[in-house]
Structure formats: C-alpha cells, structure tokens
Computed example of a mutant assay.
Amino acid sequence: MKKILAIIPLLLLFISCEKEIELDLKNTTPQIVVEGAITDAEGPYFVKLSKSINFYDPNKFPAVTGASVIITDNLGNSDVLTELEDGLYRTNNIVGFPGNTYNLSITVGEDKYYATSTMPQKVNLDSIRFEHGQDTEGEDYYSIIPIYKNPSTFGNYYRFVTKINNRTDDTYYLKNDTNGIDQINDSPIYNLDYTYINKNDLVEVEMRCIDRITYNYFNTILQVINAGPNGGITPTNPPNNITGSPALGIFSAYTTQTIKQKVE
C-alpha cells in the first residue's frame, strides 16, 4: 500500500508524451544549478552551486568551485560568501528580514548569473491538528491541517516541509490564498500515495512563506511528478528567477516557522 517516491532535486530532462521525439541523451549541454536561500531565521545562509549532467551519467552533480558569490539587500548591505566546501558557499553577515529584497550575483569564469527575491511578510502558523481518515482499503491514516489565517490581501504563497518521526517527507506541499483572504485555513496537506501518518507518530511541520516565482517553480515540478509519464502534461523546465547565463534552480527568500506535535 505504501509507496516510496524518489525525487530528483531538479528535473533536467522531460520527454513529451504527445509525440515521438529523437533525443541525444548522451550529450546535453551542462548548466549551472543554483540552490540558494535566505530566511528570517538566524544565519548563516547557503548557496549551493553544481552542474547538470548527461542523462546516462552517474547521479553525481559536479560541484562548481571558485565562484564569486555575493548577496546584497535593498538596505545597502553586501555579503561576499565564503566557500565552505566544494560548491557550498556561506554568508558571513547579511541578515534575513521580512519585506527586504535580496539580490544574488554569481560569477563563474566568464559567466554571470543574477537572481532577486523579496521575502514575504510572515503569516503566523498558529498550530497544527490531525484529521483521521481511512483509505479505500480500510487502512487508517492521519492528515495534517496547518492552522493559519490568510492576510487581508491576495498574493500569499506557502510551502510546507514535513518530517515524520524525524524523517523528511520529500513531497512538495504547496498552498496559496485561493481559499479566501482573511480566512483561516482548514484544509489538510497529505499525499496518501507516498506518506502515511499513524497514531503516536512525531510530526514536524515547517511553514515557509514564499514568493510567487518560488511557488510556481515547485508547483511546476509537482504537476509533472503527479502526472507521471503518461499524464498528458507537456513537460518543461520549471520557471525560475535566475537571469544572465542559462541556469537551473532557484534563489528564494522566505520566512520559516516550525511546530512539532505527536499524533494522539
């Protein structure tokens, strides 16, 4: 009944199910992969740089070393990141704060990459509760309902990251304010195909308030994953906020808060 989902962090290559396409899977042009974030939690923050690989290569993404990585904000602060280990760059002094805009600048040889993200105002995660249900085979499960109130204006986007008994659930849980502004959320997050929550499990829920482009990025990945190989969706690389030389990935400024609770 329970299934395991292996999610590749970046979907580098998709094949359309609408027509036959001849592809040279052995030779794809490598692109830089940017995985960067700044939050309202205490730093440091990190930017990971790697390169995409050919389809049949071993699933190891080569680190991009020796890059110049700088983060600035709208207040005039600037931080030259330190390469902590191959491909992993750490901030030194910049501070994440809701409402601030952060600019990422990366130089790798002759190539330059840029990204901008404004950290949304924090929407408070008041609590979480669990809703009992049964699947079609009569197996019990619990879904998670995050309790929060949407602000009085539209344009709010959320991503939820969960851990069950200290094990991270790789499912992309996304929500927005389509259930109504100034309304309390009462809808659950769950994916019965991959995640079952049982009584006495320890559940950790992190709520991230994200910007629209970050929401669209993960939502595109989620739609392709859910559709499967014959789902009728024409696959594409997810939209991102990286400009300059071609690149994959996302740079996101978001607020974060976490609640841990046992299912009883």
Rank of each mutant, 00 (worst) to 15 (best):
M1Q: 09
K3P: 06
K3I: 06
I7V: 14
L10M: 12
L11K: 10
S16N: 14
C17V: 06
E18A: 11
E18F: 12
E20L: 06
E20I: 10
D24W: 13
L25E: 09
N27W: 07
V34K: 10
G36N: 05
F46P: 02
S50M: 14
I53Y: 03
N54R: 06
P58T: 03
V64T: 08
V64Y: 10
T65A: 12
G66T: 01
V69P: 03
S78G: 12
L81T: 00
G87V: 01
G87M: 01
R90F: 04
T91F: 02
V95K: 13
G96V: 03
G96F: 04
G99R: 07
T101H: 10
T107P: 05
T107Y: 09
T107S: 15
V108H: 07
A115F: 10
T116R: 08
P120A: 13
K122W: 04
D126E: 09
Q134G: 07
D135M: 07
Y141F: 11
S143H: 03
I144L: 14
I144P: 02
P146G: 11
Y148A: 03
P151C: 07
F154R: 14
N156P: 01
Y157S: 02
R159N: 02
F160P: 00
V161M: 04
T162I: 06
R167H: 06
D169S: 04
D170V: 13
Y173F: 13
G180V: 09
I181H: 06
I181C: 11
D182F: 01
Q183V: 14
I184V: 15
P188F: 15
I189W: 00
I189G: 00
Y190S: 08
D193L: 15
Y196E: 08
N198V: 12
D201G: 11
D201A: 10
L202N: 13
V203A: 05
E206T: 02
C209Y: 00
C209F: 01
I210Y: 00
I213C: 06
T214D: 11
T214F: 13
F218Y: 10
F218M: 02
F218C: 01
I221E: 09
G228I: 07
N230P: 05
T236K: 13
P238R: 06
P239S: 15
N240V: 03
I242P: 00
A247Q: 12
F251P: 00
T255D: 01
T256L: 06
I259A: 10
K260P: 02
V263I: 01
